Amino acid sequence: SLEEAIRRAEEALRKGQTFEYAGIRVTTQEALEKFRKWAEKQK
């Protein structure tokens, strides 16, 4: 689910890792916010 993907992205960010979902790379807090906004639109 998208909620699960967001949780995994947050977890990866805390560990300093890269999270990738549907071709979207989350490597920074800013990218995480963009990913969250994108995920909201997918619902």
Rank of each mutant, 00 (worst) to 15 (best):
R7S: 11
I6H: 01
R25N: 09
E11C: 04
T28L: 04
Q42H: 11
Y21M: 05
W38H: 02
F35P: 00
A22N: 13
G23I: 01
T18W: 12
F35Q: 00
L32M: 07
I6W: 05
F35E: 00
K41Q: 15
E40W: 07
T28Y: 02
Q29L: 14
K34E: 15
R7P: 03
Q42D: 06
Q42V: 13
A12V: 04
K34F: 14
A5N: 05
E3W: 11
W38V: 02
L32Q: 01
F35G: 00
R25H: 13
K43G: 12
A22V: 06
A9K: 00
Q29S: 10
A22T: 04
R36Y: 08
E3I: 10
E33G: 05
E11R: 05
Q42C: 08
R8A: 14
L2A: 05
W38P: 01
Q42A: 08
F19D: 00
F19P: 01
Q17L: 14
A31G: 14
K43F: 14
R36F: 08
E20W: 08
R14T: 11
A5T: 09
K15S: 12
A22P: 02
I6K: 01
K37N: 12
R25M: 14
Q42T: 09
L13M: 07
E3N: 10
L32W: 04
A31W: 06
E3K: 09
E3D: 15
R8E: 13
L2Q: 03
V26P: 01
V26E: 00
E33R: 07
K34I: 13
Q42K: 10
E20L: 07
A9F: 04
A39K: 02
A9R: 00
V26M: 06
F35Y: 03
E40T: 06
V26H: 02
E40N: 08
L2P: 05
E40M: 08
Q42R: 07
T27I: 06
L32A: 01
A39G: 05
W38Y: 05
E11Y: 03
E40A: 08
E20R: 04
R25F: 14
V26N: 01
K15F: 10
K41D: 15
L2G: 02
K37M: 12
R36Q: 08
Q17F: 11
K37G: 09
E20A: 05
K37H: 11
R7D: 07
R7H: 11
E10G: 05
R36V: 14
G16N: 08
K15E: 12
L32S: 00
Q17I: 11
S1L: 12
R25Q: 13
A39E: 02
Y21N: 02
L13T: 03
K34W: 15
R8Q: 14
K37P: 01
G16H: 06
L13G: 00
E11F: 02
E11M: 07
T27G: 11
I6T: 04
A22K: 11
Q17P: 02
E11G: 04
A39S: 05
E33A: 10
L32P: 00
A5I: 15
G16T: 02
A39R: 02
E33W: 04
T28A: 03
R7M: 12
Q42G: 07
Y21D: 02
A9V: 03
Q29P: 13
R36T: 08
T18H: 13
A22H: 13
F19A: 01
A39M: 08
F35K: 00
E33N: 09
E4P: 02
L13D: 00
E20D: 07
K34S: 12
L13V: 13
F35T: 00
I6Q: 03
Q29W: 15
L32G: 00
G23F: 04
E3S: 10
R14E: 12
L2M: 10
Y21V: 05
K34V: 13
I6R: 01
E10V: 08
R14M: 13
A31E: 15
Y21A: 03
L2C: 06
E3L: 10
E10K: 05
L13E: 01
A22Q: 13
K43P: 11
L32Y: 07
A39V: 15
K15Q: 14
Q17V: 11
K34D: 13
K41M: 15
A12H: 06
A5P: 02
A22S: 09
L2E: 02
R14Y: 10
E33F: 05
G23Q: 04
G16P: 01
Q17S: 09
S1M: 12
W38A: 02
T27R: 06
A5Q: 10
A31N: 10
E11Q: 08
T18P: 14
A12T: 06
R8M: 14
